[in-house]
Simulated assay, not measured.
Amino acid sequence: MGILSGNPQDEPMHYGEVFGTWNYLLTAKSTIAGYQMQLNHAGDEDLKKILKDSIEGGQEEVKQIETLLKENGIGLPPTPPEPPHACLDDIPIGARMPDPAIAAALSANVASGLVACSTAIGQSIREDIAMMFGQFHMQKAQLGAKVLRLNKEKGWLIPPPLHKNKNEHCE
């Protein structure tokens, strides 16, 4: 039996897995801090709920990855401080991040998170790491669907130019 044929947790992580998980963790911590800041700016209650769910989901991912890295003797990236709570009315109008911009940033973060998860899955040779990122990917896909629905319902979605079949005009 080879070195990679037993319990995945007993297998060493390769450099790509180490870098991918470490980098994902650094990004997740920064993203959580960003969502916490955006929560101060959000006025829409549905958007606030999705931001809170995103923070909780991100914190759960952080716990899982920190455990994995610690078990493998890998140092952790720094955690940004939690931003202070602010009342929306105390933020000057010109300095506020509008709800549609927060929702658009959330959509972009979800999309880049899906790519990061897919990349980690593809480069993993340890099944437990691939499965962990597969779980994260499914959760992000579900979150993305919620954000898309929110953007459509609130009228915040800015679609790209829509393609119409040129044969529709030739009847």
Rank of each mutant, 00 (worst) to 15 (best):
M1N: 09
G2I: 04
G6P: 11
P8S: 03
D10I: 03
E11L: 05
M13F: 10
G16I: 09
E17A: 11
E17V: 10
G20S: 15
L26P: 06
K29Q: 15
I32C: 10
I32F: 11
A33C: 10
Y35D: 09
Y35G: 07
N40L: 11
A42H: 04
G43A: 10
D44A: 03
E45R: 03
D46P: 02
L47M: 06
I50L: 14
L51F: 11
S54Q: 03
S54I: 02
G57V: 01
G58A: 07
Q59I: 00
E60T: 00
E60W: 01
E61S: 00
Q64I: 02
I65S: 06
L69N: 14
N72R: 09
I74Y: 07
G75D: 15
P78A: 11
P78H: 05
P80E: 08
P80F: 10
E82D: 15
E82C: 03
P83Y: 07
P84C: 05
A86F: 09
C87F: 12
C87E: 14
D90P: 02
I93P: 08
G94E: 13
R96I: 05
M97N: 02
A101N: 13
A104H: 12
A104C: 11
A104G: 12
S107R: 13
A108P: 08
V110F: 06
V115Y: 11
V115M: 12
A116G: 00
C117F: 04
S118Q: 13
S118V: 05
A120V: 05
I121W: 06
G122W: 02
Q123L: 15
R126Q: 07
D128H: 01
I129P: 06
A130L: 07
M131I: 01
G134F: 02
Q135Y: 04
F136W: 00
M138Y: 11
K140T: 00
G144C: 07
K146P: 06
V147E: 09
L148G: 10
L148E: 10
L148W: 09
N151C: 12
N151R: 15
K152H: 09
K152A: 11
E153R: 12
K154P: 02
K154N: 06
L157T: 01
P159G: 03
P161N: 00
L162G: 12
L162Q: 15
H163N: 09
E168R: 06
E168C: 04
E168V: 01
H169F: 13
E171F: 10
